[in-house]
């Protein structure tokens, strides 16, 4: 039953990604060229509303539907990990025009070749797991 909830939220997310054209390679290319406000508007408004919502959740100590308090885990501070990892991710994002959310969404819109991108991304994650002890974090 709970899985129906996650499935529905995911479906909503997929529709939003498609209808806002955030799944489009062109929109990501346009964003990195600073030619249009569209993607900045989407991410910017989501973040501003997100900051307000998270602050309110913390202030009023909201609980989840499971009855547990909604908690936020702070990320460990480090620079190389986020900067190097982020830069590598950015290279891939600008190439495929898709981050993980849109990769899944694009599969549903019928681009079967995106399976190659998904498979390569899994392979990249696997490789990271194997070499992570040798990387600066």
């Amino acid at each position: 039953m709970k899985y129906i909830t996650y499935l529905s939220i995911g479906t909503l997310f997929g529709i939003i990604m498609t209808k806002s054209q955030a799944i489009s390679w062109y929109r990501i290319y346009e964003m990195f060229r600073f030619d249009s406000f569209h993607m900045y508007g989407i991410i910017g408004s989501a973040v501003i509303l997100g900051i307000i919502s998270v602050a309110l959740i913390k202030k009023y100590k909201f609980k989840s539907t499971e009855g547990t308090p909604i908690s936020f885990t702070s990320k460990n501070m480090s620079i190389p990990r986020y900067l190097f990892g982020g830069t590598i991710f950015g290279l891939g994002w600008a190439m495929t025009g898709a981050c993980p959310g849109p990769i899944y969404t694009l599969l549903g819109t019928g681009y079967s070749v995106i399976l190659v991108v998904l498979f390569s991304a899994i392979l990249g994650t696997l490789t990271y797991g194997i070499v992570r002890n040798r990387l600066p974090h």
Binding site: I88, F89, G92, M95, C99, P100, V117, R132
Partner: peptide, 15 residues
């Protein structure tokens, strides 16, 4: 497709 996907998976987990 292949390098792009690899960077996404590797970079996302690294970061």
């Amino acid at each position: 497709l292949v390098f792009g996907g690899f960077f996404i998976g590797f970079g996302a987990r690294y970061a």
